[in-house]
């Protein structure tokens, strides 16, 4: 089923020799696996355009699952997210650049972080926590880990499955968009992230989502013997 909806892109992949960048991103979205083709191949304008179209299709497909009014797709953010993920995956395998180059390669998103941007970038960024875990397994002292964690701190919707430092997270975007808010709560419950669920900002909202069925749906959330996380 998943593969069928990408008919358009399979055609694209078949007709001309697709770029390694597009191949990696489509493979990631279809199979949820990282597949790298070569060491730091250059990304051309054309690649960017193709990946942009592909991500937009993905966004339109995913938004069927989004409640309330769905924010607009933000192509710049989606491309930025894909680029960050792609570079991080490359660094997982190849380490030829020195540590000084790292901040240049992982520059922050130049545009404004809107609910649409968060959801668009999340198409790729949601896989970043898995890469972070791999990086930590290889070398916990890696400078890249801190850089990526700092990035995720701004894009924390993509890091709900990751044990991020939750201090000073900005929830402004969540309050702007009910769609993003509901998706955020859904993901907290889905990933069973108790620490975030007991955050004073989310606890009452998740409580009202679960309603009187909390004991059936998520027992740990209301377990009295679990001390709530100390936020001070």
């Amino acid at each position: 089923m998943l593969v069928l909806k990408h008919n358009l892109f399979l055609d694209l992949l078949m007709s001309s020799e697709p770029s390694p960048y597009l191949k990696t991103i489509t493979h990631l979205r279809v199979y949820e696996e990282i597949m790298l083709y070569g060491n730091f191949p250059a990304i051309s304008e054309e690649d960017q355009a193709q990946v942009g179209t592909f991500l937009q299709c993905e966004y339109e497909d995913e938004q069927l699952d989004y409640p309330f009014e769905v924010p607009e797709f933000d192509e710049a953010a989606a491309l930025w997210g894909a680029r960050i993920l792609y570079t991080a995956a490359q660094f997982l395998l190849y380490r030829q650049n020195s540590a000084q180059d790292l901040p240049n390669l992982f520059r922050e998103f130049p545009g404004q972080i809107t609910p649409g941007a968060i959801l668009s970038a999340d198409l790729s960024l949601r896989f970043l926590p898995d890469i972070l875990i791999q990086l930590k397994v290889i070398d916990p002292e890696d400078a890249l880990i801190e850089i990526l964690e700092n990035l995720l701190h701004d894009w924390h919707y993509s890091a709900i499955s990751y044990s991020l430092n939750h201090e000073g997270l900005s929830f402004q975007n969540l309050e702007q968009s009910r769609c993003l808010m509901q998706l955020y709560l859904n993901r907290i419950v889905d990933k069973r992230n108790l620490k975030l669920a007991h955050h004073p900002f989310f606890a009452p909202r998740i409580g009202s989502d679960l309603g009187i069925y909390a004991s059936q749906l998520w027992t740990d959330f209301i377990k009295p013997e679990l001390p709530p996380y100390d936020w001070n």
Partner: peptide
């Protein structure tokens, strides 16, 4: 269109013609 996903997690469904849905599961 406004429901939290967790409330739907235990429920399976099918469409009954002409325009009804059959929902099975608790709560």
């Amino acid at each position: 269109s406004t429901a939290p996903a967790i409330r739907l997690s235990n429920i399976s469904w099918a469409i009954i013609r002409p325009n009804f849905a059959f929902l099975l599961g608790k709560p």
